[in-house]
Amino acid sequence: MRQYDLAARLRAALDHGDELALAGALNRDVCMVVDSGDEAGGELRDRGRVVRGLRDQQARHPDASWVTVHVNGQAGLALRRPNGEVVGVLSIDGTAAIARLWLCTSPRKLAGWNRRRPEID
């Protein structure tokens, strides 16, 4: 499966709050690295924890929505507020299902994202 397809499946599941589709997009042993720029970051392992981590990120920014973007040359997602501010960038890796995610929420590292907005929608 192409990276864009994985990003599209994940975004649709997140947008619709479809827990079953969200779990289905993720490999059973999925790992998500969270780079918050401080001690709050870390690594989440297994589907349930990653689903909760993604939901927690959305809950912290209820006014934001996921958009499909290029992340390091591949399809990924950005969590963007209505004013255009990006509060999270999600890089996706996998083949048939997502095996690894990298979520950056560090304001310092997101500074470049808040100057330009490379959408692929």
Rank of each mutant, 00 (worst) to 15 (best):
M1Q: 10
R2E: 13
Q3V: 03
Y4S: 14
D5R: 11
D5V: 09
L6N: 11
A7H: 05
A8L: 13
A8K: 14
R9L: 10
R9P: 00
L10M: 11
L10G: 09
R11M: 13
A12T: 12
A12F: 01
L14Y: 04
L14V: 05
D15K: 13
D15Q: 15
H16S: 15
G17P: 11
G17R: 11
D18V: 11
E19S: 13
E19P: 00
L20K: 14
A21C: 06
L22G: 09
G24E: 13
A25Y: 01
A25K: 02
A25V: 03
L26D: 08
L26F: 08
N27V: 01
N27D: 15
N27Q: 13
R28C: 00
R28T: 10
D29S: 13
D29C: 00
V30C: 06
C31S: 14
C31H: 06
C31N: 04
M32H: 04
M32F: 02
V33Q: 14
V33R: 15
V34K: 07
S36C: 04
G37Y: 06
G37E: 05
D38M: 03
D38T: 04
E39S: 12
G41L: 05
G42R: 05
G42S: 04
E43Y: 00
L44C: 02
R45T: 14
D46S: 14
R49S: 12
R49F: 02
R49I: 00
R49Q: 14
V50M: 04
V51T: 10
R52V: 08
R52D: 14
G53L: 05
G53Y: 06
L54F: 07
R55G: 01
R55C: 07
D56R: 13
D56H: 09
Q57I: 00
Q57M: 12
Q58F: 00
Q58H: 02
A59M: 07
R60L: 12
P62F: 08
D63P: 00
A64Q: 10
S65N: 12
S65V: 13
W66M: 08
W66D: 07
V69S: 04
V69M: 04
H70K: 11
V71H: 07
N72R: 14
N72H: 11
A75G: 13
G76A: 02
G76V: 03
G76S: 03
L77G: 06
L77C: 05
L79C: 10
R80N: 01
R80Y: 01
R80V: 15
R80P: 00
P82S: 12
P82G: 11
G84R: 15
G84A: 15
G84C: 04
G84E: 12
V87H: 09
V87C: 11
V89P: 07
V89W: 03
V89I: 12
L90A: 06
S91H: 13
I92G: 10
D93A: 14
D93F: 06
T95F: 03
T95R: 10
A96V: 10
A96Y: 02
A96W: 02
A96L: 11
A97D: 12
I98A: 10
I98Q: 07
A99M: 07
L101H: 08
W102T: 14
L103S: 08
C104E: 11
C104W: 01
T105L: 03
T105Y: 02
S106R: 04
S106E: 11
P107T: 07
P107R: 09
P107G: 05
R108D: 10
A111I: 04
A111P: 00
W113N: 04
N114P: 09
R115F: 01
R115P: 00
E119C: 02
E119H: 09
I120L: 13
I120K: 06
D121M: 03
